[in-house]
């Protein structure tokens, strides 16, 4: 709950790796009088891949954006590595170093090259030495299979390439958790694959990933746990095999029958 007592030690200092890395408890969020999240609770363990699915307008994106503090919440608690996100005294810099997010619209900085996009935050925000950052950034660009595109501007790249630069840009901050907000929804079908491949690699390397997605095949294959949300609540959740074959709630079944 939001009124939980806070320890005197630095926030989250008592957190250990066997506890959930992200923990949501009874999260409520409203836009004016419209309540979009009506008591969401879920735990994510380190290295887990979580997929959140559900009809549009069910609050999936809002939920994921609350986790790194882009949206504030009215009630409940969100903890990242034991640190309360919904705390006005929270050091946002610390939180955002831990949690990276990739958006549906990539949101690359159009006036900077792919390499600069990846390097900017570590150099300007974390004040890390430029040479070191550049080395890391080049390695990340190679990792998302974009060698040779270092000096390309976002406008010269395809949607899928831009999205992979955006992933590299987030990774450059060395986050512990990655959030993916419908990252393939704006892409051409042929470029969806390359982005999913990148995310799959990340997941297999043990990165904790929370994805909002419409890619059911991908969720089934990659996710450790699938959550189905509708109208601001979690209707049903479970491991993908169970979730996709033996969904019990009629709303889930109806949604799956429309999608699959």
């Amino acid at each position: 709950m939001s009124l939980q007592t806070k320890s005197k030690s630095p926030a989250g200092a008592d957190w250990t790796a066997d506890q959930p890395i992200v923990s949501l408890c009874d999260v409520h969020k409203s836009y004016g009088s419209v309540e979009v999240l009506k008591g969401i609770s879920l735990d994510v363990r380190k290295g887990e891949v979580i997929c959140i699915i559900g009809p549009s307008g069910s609050g999936k994106s809002t939920l994921i954006r609350c986790i790194n503090g882009l949206n504030d919440i009215q009630k409940g608690s969100i903890k990242v590595e034991g640190q309360e996100v919904n705390d006005p005294k929270l050091d946002l810099l610390t939180l955002r170093k831990k949690v990276g997010i990739v958006f549906q619209q990539y949101n690359l900085f159009p006036h900077k090259t792919a390499l600069d996009n990846v390097m900017m935050a570590p150099v300007l925000v974390l004040k890390e030495p430029k040479k070191e950052v550049e080395e890391r950034a080049r390695a990340l660009i190679a990792k998302v299979r974009l060698q040779g595109k270092e000096n390309a501007y976002p406008g010269e790249l395809s949607g899928g390439q831009q999205q992979r630069v955006a992933i590299a840009r987030s990774l450059a901050m060395r986050p512990d958790v990655m959030l993916f907000d419908e990252v393939t929804a704006a892409l051409d079908p042929e470029t969806v694959k390359e982005v999913l491949l990148t995310i799959r690699e990340l997941a297999s390397e043990g990165m904790t990933c929370i994805l909002v997605t419409h890619e059911m095949g991908f969720a089934r294959e990659v996710a450790d746990h699938v959550y189905f949300t509708d109208q601001g609540v979690i209707v049903e959740h479970g491991p993908p095999r169970q979730f996709f074959t033996k969904a019990s709630d009629p709303r889930t079944r109806q949604f799956l029958s429309q999608i699959l």
Binding site: R96, K97, Q105, L108, M120, A121, L124, V125, M173
Partner: peptide
């Protein structure tokens, strides 16, 4: 707005976002 959001999520402060991302554009 996405430019502000992605800068924010990369831990840029408002002043840094203006200086490095918004004003150059």
């Amino acid at each position: 707005k996405g430019q502000w959001e992605s800068a924010e999520s990369l831990a840029f402060t408002r002043a840094q976002t203006l200086r490095w991302i918004i004003l150059p554009q």
